[in-house]
Design a protein around this nucleic acid. Structure first.
Length: 392
RNA sequence: CCAGGGGUGGCGGAGCGGCCAAUCGCAGCAGACUGUAAAUCUGCCGGGUUUAUCCCUACGGGAGUUCGAAUCUCUCCCCCUGGA
């Protein structure tokens, strides 16, 4: 049984503190999902997983079906479901549909861009010709010298098979380089795919929950149209996806357009976003859920998040004999691992390096979202935001 | 002492007459990373400067050959491997 209850709404913004439940599992919101694409927390041995302060995580349909030629998926199914496979019975597990790979392995790869830009795009950038074959039926990927077919029905089938608590509808994540015309076509196709996902989901709707995805790129009219369409559908929540424009401001504008059009009582998940400022800006605008690769990926890339010093490249602190963050309770900080030690492990390619760094960043984000939830309840979100904006 | 193989930028290691200030890797420096093609990627990395199809100093030391040498010759020094 799924429920989402809003327990407190911030006075000065759209921020809300809520409780999301699916059968015996529950999480408090706002919360950020740690990305576990292949049903694993990269670089952390499984015996540590139960100690991680993670209540929400997300796996990926596309990568589950392509990893080890599909045998990973079979192993998950044999375990019962993805919770049992991972030994994470108590965590809410979401699964992405593979819709992001339509972008990341398509236009994203072709142009080496992400869904949030850093420059103003011009007409010279416009490209509507994806290297993938995208048709009304679905998408054909060429990956690892193999042909992978994904349709709304196939994506749903896999997400049902692994037993995710929250499933995302199969969509086409648009590119910042797409024309408005293409962005509209992709959005409308995504809407039609959603209807097929809803139909496939019907028999499973008592145990699992389908979130539809709002598209429309950086265009106000498209975003609003998509939000209005989604608001009417029989879904448990909403993902806000697709291209988010050239700059952070564009991305926040998308939230401002879309969220007021969505029903208050359903959760909103801002797909793929999660830098520190983005979390605050999103929460203020009414986002309940996030997911982002940044905590784990940047840890592997030797970047740490701290509550006292901001974002830190370990390279610059490698001679310090301090723990990573004096206010942190993560395994690394409890064991008094220093910057010097961590750097040494990175140089030696010791697996403890990415492991401790990743655990640290996961702890950081857990602390951050916990503080945000507390701040919403005590109407002090703004003060907390100011505190973090000094170093982020 | 004899025979053979070597000595190249912080380190490892290419080059074996001009396209060499010298491939590449490591380390160093700077930057990036937002529904994970990512423990990855990009740029710099002898010195100077007007940042350039410029100038210096450089491939163990010295002396040669040559229009031209890290690359060939001689000699000295040092290292490694066999032999006495």
């Amino acid at each position: 049984m799924f429920s989402f209850t809003i327990q407190h709404t911030d006075r000065g913004s759209r921020a809300r503190y809520g409780m999301l439940k699916n059968s015996s599992r529950s999480i408090e919101t706002p919360e950020l999902a740690i990305v576990a694409t292949k049903a694993q927390f990269k670089s952390i041995p499984q015996e540590y997983w139960s100690q991680l302060p993670v209540q929400y995580l997300i796996v990926n349909t596309f990568h589950l079906m392509t990893t080890q030629a599909g045998t990973l998926l079979q192993r998950i199914e044999r375990s019962g479901d993805v919770h049992e496979f991972m030994g994470c019975e108590d965590k809410i597990i979401a699964s992405d549909s593979g819709g992001f790979q339509v972008f990341s392995l398509g236009f994203g790869k072709k142009h080496n861009i992400g869904k949030v830009g850093r420059e103003k795009f011009s007409s010279a950038h416009v490209d509507d010709s994806s290297p993938l074959s995208i048709t009304e039926d679905g998408v054909a990927f060429a990956f690892d010298n193999k042909k992978i077919q994904l349709t709304p029905e196939r994506s749903m089938e896999i997400q049902h098979a692994i037993g995710a608590d929250i499933m995302f509808a199969f969509d086409e994540c648009s590119s910042p380089y797409n024309s408005k015309k293409y962005t509209r076509a992709a959005m409308e196709r995504t809407h039609r795919w959603l209807m097929r996902c809803i139909k496939s989901h019907q028999p499973f709707s008592n145990k699992q929950n389908l979130f539809g995805i709002i598209q429309g790129g950086e265009y106000e009219d498209l975003r609003k149209e998509s939000a209005r369409f989604l608001a009417k559908q029989n879904v448990s929540g909403f993902g806000i996806g697709g291209s988010l424009g050239s700059f952070k401001e564009d991305m926040y504008a998308v939230l401002d357009w879309v969220i007021p059009l969505l029903p208050e009582e359903k959760p909103r998940h801002f797909l793929g976003i999660g830098q520190v400022r983005d979390i605050f800006e999103g929460v203020e605008r009414g986002v309940d859920l996030f997911d982002c690769v940044i905590p784990t990926r940047e840890a592997r890339h030797r970047v740490l998040y701290t509550h006292d010093k901001g974002k830190i490249s370990i390279r610059k602190y490698k001679h310090l004999n301090d723990v990573l963050d004096s206010t942190c309770q993560c395994i690394s900080c409890r064991e008094k691992v220093t910057y010097r030690q961590l750097w040494q492990w990175f140089l030696e390619k010791d697996p403890r390096a990415p492991m401790y760094a990743t655990m640290h960043n996961i702890w950081f984000y857990a602390d951050l979202t916990r503080k945000i939830r507390e701040a919403i309840q005590t109407n002090s979100l703004n003060e907390l935001k100011e505190l973090y904006y000094r170093i982020y």
